[in-house]
């Protein structure tokens, strides 16, 4: 296959994308940096305050709590969804109408607007009108996600598993489908059991697809906003207030331009750092 040709004329091809994304990413980010350095009463009355908002945000207990909560939530999401997604992918039929049907069924949660996902779980888990809530109450479990922080966490996690495990499953399914049959035959000749086949044949070949699954789930769980906003509104108390919830309440709710902007910059830097680590990993994978 011929090598990729080296020419800087290719910049003309990417120019439209650069312009569109510069408009919707670079200008806003510059603006956020500008805002984060000032105390803004209105756009004509503003005072330069240096890094004060950053100091304040980094010492704000609610910010730190939201950050810890976010970290715990994302870890829980990965720990549950990765193994579950792989197991589901292994169980899926390989071909035929059953495979198509199952794939569309599994893809379904991904196509539902995020606020509707929240609504679905709201009416499913409520103790008064929800099937799950009523069933648990019938079993004698005192389950109320609007009053108990633990129940709220369980419900939000169940909702996220319901919503996003499909993504991991579809990625893993596609990765499994790409493994040549010869590998399995060779493993069978060696007398490998199901666990050995998974450990030494499938898992190594799923590596790159799983790294991408981890990247996507980590990043998307880090920006979760809509589903808990509808389901719990961040409560009870602040029990399910994650980073985006807190930032949105600062930016749109109270319209605190300076602190919200400092928060945004910190949040973005964190994402950038995680993104870079994973990109380096993926690229290494591609080279080896």
């Amino acid at each position: 296959m011929p090598e990729r040709r080296s020419t800087n004329l290719a910049w003309f091809g990417v120019l439209p994308v650069v312009l569109v994304v510069a408009f919707s990413a670079v200008i806003p980010l510059m603006t956020v940096v500008n805002y984060s350095l000032q105390d803004i009463f209105d756009l004509n009355t503003r005072v330069f305050v240096g890094f004060d908002w950053y100091r304040e945000t980094l010492r704000d207990p609610r910010f730190l709590e939201a950050l810890v909560r976010q970290g715990l939530f994302s870890m829980a999401v990965l720990v549950i969804q990765l193994p579950l997604g792989i197991l589901v992918a292994k169980g899926l039929p390989k071909s035929g109408w059953r495979a198509s049907f199952m794939l569309v069924l599994i893809a379904l949660p991904l196509l539902i607007p995020w606020n509707v996902v929240g609504t679905i779980w709201q009416i499913f888990a409520r103790p008064d009108i929800g099937l799950l809530g009523a069933a648990l109450a019938g079993l004698g479990v005192d389950f109320n996600y609007t009053a108990s922080p633990v129940d709220a966490w369980i419900t939000v996690l169940m909702m996220d598993v319901w919503h996003w495990t499909s993504l991991v499953a579809l990625l893993a399914y596609a990765g499994l489908a790409a493994i040549p049959q010869a590998y399995y035959q060779a493993a069978a000749l060696d007398g490998a059991g199901p666990w050995e086949v998974f450990r030494y044949v499938e898992l190594p070949r799923l590596r790159s697809v799983l790294i991408i699954a981890i990247l996507l789930r980590l990043m998307d769980s880090f920006m979760i906003y809509t589903e808990p906003f509808v389901l719990t509104g961040g409560g009870p108390g602040n029990a399910t207030t994650f980073l985006s919830q807190y930032l949105t309440s600062m930016a749109v709710g109270q319209f605190d331009l300076g602190p919200a902007a400092a928060f945004s910059v910190l949040y973005f830097l964190l994402i950038l750092l995680m993104c870079w680590v994973f990109y380096t990993l993926v690229m290494r994978e591609a080279h080896e």
Partner: peptide
């Protein structure tokens, strides 16, 4: 990075 960035960050600007 723009695919990964949380929309909440861009809300204000």
């Amino acid at each position: 990075t723009n695919r990964m960035a949380p929309p909440a960050v861009f809300l204000l600007p």
